[in-house]
Design a protein around this nucleic acid. Structure first.
Lengths: 209, 209, 209, 209
DNA sequence: CTATAAGCGAGACGGTACGTCGCGTCTTAAT
DNA sequence: ATTAAGACGCGACGTACCGTCTCGCTTATAG
C-alpha cells in the first residue's frame, strides 16, 4: 500500500490513518455505483472527504488504488473444513462465486487484470494482493485432502507448491470467473457440483494413471 | 457490426465500406501499439484516414468498436481433426492460447468483458461476436468424439447443446484465459497436455459414473 | 442575387424559382427565432424544405444569404410627401426605426456590417442591396425640399449626389441605429422630433453661414 | 471584467493575474490577425500560453471576452481642452474615428453589438465597459462649454445627464460609426469639420428656439 | 516554546480526449 | 442539370478528468 520506509524522517505532520480507510471505502462505493470505467479520482476524493493531493500522495494511479480497495474483499475467502475434498472444492467455488457477484469485485477484477497485461508492476501488485490470497486456498485444500488420505502424500522432494497446484488453480478460478463474467450464468449449487465432479474425476485419473 | 436493416432508406450517399475496414484495421493497430486504455477514438480515426464523425456514425463507443475489431480474430479459430479427442482438445487449447498471445487480443479481451459487467448490450455483442465463435468449437469437438465412439452418443431428445457443453466450455476457456492473463504463465505443450489429461479424466469419470 | 448569365446553357432541369423564395423566407424566420449567430445553413435548408446543395448552388455563404434575405425589408422604405422637410425627416426616421425593431433586421444588420469590415465583396453587396436603398430617401427628401423652396436649389454643376447628402445620410442613419441598437432606447415621436429639430437647425445654419 | 467579490473564498490557489492580461492581449492580437468571425477560443488560449479551461473559467463566451479585450481601447479616449466647443467636438470625432480604424476595434465593435441584440447581459456589459466610457466625453464637453459660456448653464434641477446629452451622444457616435463602418469612407479633417458645423448649428438653433 | 517540516483542503493550472455540431463537398438515385 | 437525402473530411466547440501546483492552515517532532 502506501509504503513508508522505516528510515523515513520522523518530523512533520503524520499521515491520517482515517483518510486511508475513508479513501478505500469511497473507492468501493464508487465502484458499486459507477463501475470501473466511470470511477474518477476526483470523485473518490470527494466521497472520502479528502483533497485530491491526499489521494495522490498515497496511490500513484487509479489502478493501484482499486487493486488495494478490492484486495481486502479477498481476505474473506476461507476454507472451512467440510469433511471431504469434494465438499471443500464446492465450498471454495461457491465462495469465490459469491465474491464475484459483488458489483465492486465484478467490475474491478477483470478491469485491473486487463490493465495488467501492459503494466508489469500492476501485475505484481495484483498477484501479491489478490492472486496469492486465492491460491492459498488451493494449497490448503490439497494439504487437507492429503492428510485425510484422499490424495497421495506429497513427493518428499517437492516444495510447498507444485505445477499441479497451479493447474488446479487456473482451472478452478478460470472456470468460475468465466462462468460468472463471460457466460454470465449463475454459479449455483448444481453447477458447482457438476464442476467438482469433473475436477475430482480428472484428479483421480491423473493420480492413478 | 453496423447492421443496416433491409428497410433502410435508399436515398443519400451510401456509407463507405472501405472506411469500415480501415477503421477496424486501425483499431487493431492502435490496440497493439497503445493498448486498450490509451486507445483513443481520435487516434483511431486519424490512423484510418477518416473523420471522427464517421467513426461515431458507425460505432457508439470505444467498447463496441473494439469488440468488432477483435471479433474477426476469433474467425481464425478452427478445429482440424487430429484423430482423437485428446489431440483435438490440445489443439484448441494451443490455438486459443496463441490467439491470447496477440497483443491486440490480450489487452482488449478482458477489458471489454470488464465493461460488459455493467453494459448488457455490450455483453450481448460480445456473446454473439466472440463467445459463440469459441463455443462452436466445443460442440464440434464433442460431436466428432461421439462419431469416433470416444464419447457416448447424444441422448435422442437433447438439443444441439447441453449443460455439459457449457461446463466444458467454461472450464476450457476459463482455464486458458486464467493461465495466460492472470497467472501470466505460458500455455505450452506441457501445460496443454496436463490440462487435457485432467479434463479427459474428468469426462471419463462423469460418463462412467 | 443568384445571377444566371444570359448565355447559360439551356439543357438540364431548370432551377426551381419556388426554392429561392422558400429559402429567403426560411432565412428570415430563422433570424427571428435564432438570431444571426445561431442561424445555420442546414437549419435554413430544412425549414425551406430544400437540400443543402440547393442552397449552396445559389448562395456561397451565410453572409450573402442573409444580406439578400434582409434586403427586401428595405424595399418597404418610402418617403411619402408629408408637406414639409421636417415632417419628411421625422417620417423617415420613424420608418427606419420601425424597421430596426423587427428582430430579423436588428440581429442581421449589424452582424453583416461587422463581417463586411473584413470582406470587401460583402461590403459591396450590402452597399448595393441595403445602403443605396436608404440613401435614395435622403436624395429624394432633399430634392423635394428644394422644390418646396425649403432648401436652396442645387448648384448647377453638381451631380445627383453631394458630400452634404452623404453627411446627412450618415448622421440620420447613424443616429437612429445607435439609438436603437447601442443605446437600446426607443426611437419614439419625441426623440424623432428633437433629432429632426437638431438636424434642421444645423442645415439652416450651414445654408445661411 | 471577471469581478471577484470581496467575500470570495480565501482557500485554494488564487487565479493568475498574468493569465488575465495574457488572454486579453492574445484576444486583441487574434482580432487583428483573424477578425471576429475567425477568432476561436482555442487559438486565443494557445496564443496566451494558457489552457482552454483557464479561459472558460474567466469568461463564459467569446462575446464577453472580446468586449473586455476591446474595452480597454476606449480608456484611451480623452477630451483635451482645445479652447472651444467646436474644436473639442472635432477632437473627439477624430479620436473616435482613429479608434475605429484599429482593426481589432473595427471587427469587434459591430459584432458584439449585433450579438447584444439577443443577449441582454452582454448589452449591459457593453454599456458599462464601452458605451459609458464614450458618453463620459459628451458630458465633459458639454460641461466645459457651459463653463466657457458657449452653452447656457444647466437647469438648476437637472441631474448630471439629460435627454439632450443622450441625443448628442447618439448623433456623434452614430454618425462616426456609420461613416467609418457602413459608408466605409474616411473620417478626415474635412468631414469632421462639416459634421461639427452641422451639429453646432443644430445646437445653437435648439438653444435659441 | 519556538522552528521546522510534512500533511491537509481547496481550487487554479496546463493538458488531453471527449462526443457533438456546423461547415461546405461529395455521391447516390430520382426527376 | 437539378433535386432530396445523407455520408464525408474537417475544425471548433464546451466539458470532464488528469496529475501538478500553489495557497493558507494544521499538526507533529526537534531544538
Amino acid at each position: 500500500m502506501c509504503s513508508r520506509t522505516s528510515s523515513r524522517s520522523r518530523t512533520g505532520r503524520p499521515r491520517s490513518a482515517e483518510a486511508d480507510a475513508a479513501i478505500l471505502d469511497a473507492t468501493r462505493a464508487a465502484l458499486v455505483e459507477l463501475g470501473w470505467s466511470k470511477l474518477t479520482m476526483g470523485d473518490v476524493a470527494t466521497r472520502a472527504g479528502v483533497a485530491k493531493t491526499t489521494l495522490y500522495r498515497r496511490w500513484a494511479s487509479k489502478n493501484e488504488l482499486v487493486v488495494d480497495a478490492v484486495a481486502v474483499l479477498f481476505d474473506e475467502l476461507e476454507l472451512p473444513d467440510r469433511g471431504s475434498l469434494a465438499a471443500d472444492i464446492e465450498g471454495v467455488v461457491r465462495q469465490f462465486a459469491a465474491l464475484l457477484e459483488r458489483p465492486e469485485a465484478k467490475t474491478a477484477l477483470m478491469a485491473v487484470v486487463a490493465e495488467s497485461t501492459r503494466d508489469e508492476p500492476l501485475r505484481q501488485r495484483i498477484r501479491a494482493s489478490i492472486v496469492e490470497r486465492q491460491k492459498r486456498l488451493v494449497l490448503q485444500g490439497r494439504r487437507r485432502a492429503q492428510e485425510r488420505g484422499e490424495l497421495p502424500p506429497p513427493a518428499p522432494d517437492s516444495g510447498p507448491s507444485s505445477g499441479t497446484d497451479d493447474l488446479i488453480f487456473d482451472v478452478v478460478a478460470g472456470a468460475v470467473v468465466h462462468r460468472a463474467l463471460v457466460s454470465a450464468e449463475p454459479v449455483d449449487a448444481d453447477w458447482a457440483q457438476r464442476f467438482t465432479a469433473l475436477l475430482l474425476g480428472g484428479l483421480a485419473a491423473a493420480t492413478q494413471g
